[in-house]
Amino acid sequence: MTWIMARIVRAGLFGSLLLGAMFGISCTDPQRVSLLNVSFDPTREFFGEINAAFQKNWTATNATTLRIQQSHGGSAKQARAVIDGLDADVVTLALGHDIDRIAAETGILPRDWQQRLPNRSTPYTSTVVFMVRKGNPKRILNWPDLVRSGVQVITPNPKSSGGARWNYLAAYGWARRQPGGDDRSAREFVARIFRNVPVLDSGARGATVTFLQRGIGDVLLTWESEAHQALSHAEGLSGEIVTPSESIVAEPPVAVIDRNARKHGVLPLAECYLRFLYTEEAQMIAARHHFRPQLENAAMKAGVHFPPIVRFSLAEICGDWQAAHAAHFATGGWFDQIQSQRKP
């Protein structure tokens, strides 16, 4: 009998130790500072390098070790995770709308977050380009080529992917800026493109995998940075980047989540981390990852050439995210209507 009791007691001890370990995992070592950056899909490699650079600067001046954790996923999904309790210290998402939602639904950062850092809290930008098959067999050179019949366009789902919203709005904006173009003709143009879309992945990364690894589609709509990133990692798979005559300025903003950072005691660090993105060093890293830097000569210094392109902003074509979301991406918006037209 006693050995049974001893066993039970031991099992109980073991169990409580485990439970302790389970909850203790979130406890922080005072000698170790940690920062969580919740980001979207196409920034994995970029932040890998940024974090290494920031850490190097940090260890040069601090005794404590710094650990920067990254979480990547579709922008809207990441925003939802933060709203539902993911403890981000900083968010670096694909579009302002997602950060607006965090601010509006939880109040863990002020609503005017976008005014806190230069360039509307956007340290680098990108633009939407085309990736085509080697040799461009379908001769896809500009936006109108996407609506030709027989051309398959790959783009992620704009409802879940922040990157894809920029893709969508780039197409919309191009059509709207054509002579005689208006909201109606632009919507029709977008609808025609989506009729050529055979697969809607939920994130930018998924779409790139579909295009490059699974070999589906003739053209991939993607961010310039993601296109270069994918080609450099494509392992024997090949594609070419085509820069259209005009495209949108994709602005992925960054923000400190004040309440979380304060709770973790890393508020100054988080601010410092985001400001670091505006330094020449970080801007050059951005350029090397084909994000267009805000700092003028960073690209030249990094030895990266960005092809010339006329870029229009979101404000020029549909005002702000609030309006764009309501008109196009909200439930029952234009994108939903396009999708239900596709119904067989």
Partner: peptide, 10 residues
């Protein structure tokens, strides 16, 4: 899943 999405297929 994450590695696959990162173009790190192998």
């Amino acid at each position: 899943d994450n590695l696959n999405a990162d173009h790190r297929g192998s």
